[in-house]
């Protein structure tokens, strides 16, 4: 995570001992390891499992040795589907959060650095976006447009941009008048050089902690949109859609259809939030 800051140090590579210590630090962060595990499962799990759309002999079969998580109303294997869905959910979450950072971080930094009307304008725009409950806003835009995966990614990113904008802005603000920034100006460096080299690396920790939280948010939003029926549609494997599909069967005692994808969301979101804590308190 901090590699961004390190990578920019010109012509200075850190001694290998320091790098080894960084790796050691990483392993002392349990949530980070769990997240790594989840990502690995999402990446490689599907290769060991069958087609998530393959129909089995029984519909709504309870968990067994054959179907670890049972089967759903279409007779598809839920375990296979939960693992496959991890790909889509993580990918959408990650890309949406990344887009939000890419847009929000520079804008927020610029807003703090420039100040004045530019700052006010950006703040008002992000406030008006944030005035809507995130989910409602996303819901509104998705229903107005056609719900496809790229559209969902863009919308989830959009509703997260104000978060980064404000976060970066408030992190940059105290740095704008820091002595080393003034010193950099006095050394004749340009505005963008100063922002890129001297201001942003100093806020990367906060922003990356938020990034982890935001991937979690993005996953929740995607799942929620699918749950209310405007996101991903069944039978595409996606956790939120699967919970939706299974919810109807809860009352008949077929709890496994909704429970396992729900647990997947819970585990992923909790892990991502915990990682954020580790970034904040670590190093």
């Amino acid at each position: 995570m901090t590699a961004t800051a390190d990578g920019q140090a010109p012509a200075v590579s850190k001694p290998p001992r320091r790098r080894a210590r960084a790796a050691g630090r990483l392993l002392r962060r349990p949530a980070f390891v769990v997240l790594l595990l989840i990502v690995l499962i999402a990446l490689f799990g599907p290769f060991f499992l069958g087609d998530p759309l393959e129909l089995g002999p029984d519909t709504l079969a309870a968990p067994s040795m054959q179907n670890w998580f049972g089967t759903d109303q279409f007779s598809m294997d839920i375990f296979t589907r939960v693992v496959h869905a991890a790909r889509l959910d993580l990918l959408v979450g990650f890309i949406a959060a990344a887009l939000a950072v890419l847009a929000g971080m520079p804008l927020g930094a610029l807003a703090a650095y420039r100040g004045g009307a530019f700052d006010t304008l950006l703040l008002r725009v992000s406030e008006s976006l944030q005035a809507f409950p995130t989910l409602l806003l996303a819901l509104g835009i998705v229903t107005a447009l056609s719900p496809s995966i790229p559209v969902l990614v863009m919308i989830i990113a959009l509703v997260n941009v104000p978060v980064y904008l404000r976060l970066t802005r408030s992190a940059v603000q105290p740095l704008v008048n820091a002595d080393f920034v003034l010193a950099a100006r006095c050394a004749g460096k340009g505005q963008f050089t100063i922002l890129r080299r001297h201001v942003l690396p100093n806020v990367s920790e906060v922003v990356f902690a938020q990034f982890s939280v935001n991937v979690a948010w993005a996953i929740q939003i995607l799942a929620a949109l699918s749950f209310v029926g405007v996101g991903v549609k069944l039978p595409t494997p996606e956790w939120g859609a699967m919970v939706r599909g299974g919810a109807d069967y809860m009352i008949y005692g077929q709890w496994w259809v909704a429970l396992f994808p729900g647990l997947a969301i819970l585990a992923t979101v909790l892990t991502l939030n915990q990682v954020a804590d580790e970034i904040r308190h670590g190093s």
């Binding site: 050394a187 004749g188 080299r197």
Partner: peptide, 22 residues
């Protein structure tokens, strides 16, 4: 001119250097 023909040093040297660069 700044840093080129006119240079300045401030009171608090440790704050004048960026903590994240060597």
């Amino acid at each position: 001119l700044r840093g080129g023909r006119i240079a300045i040093m401030f009171q608090n040297p440790r704050a004048s250097l960026n903590p994240v660069h060597t």
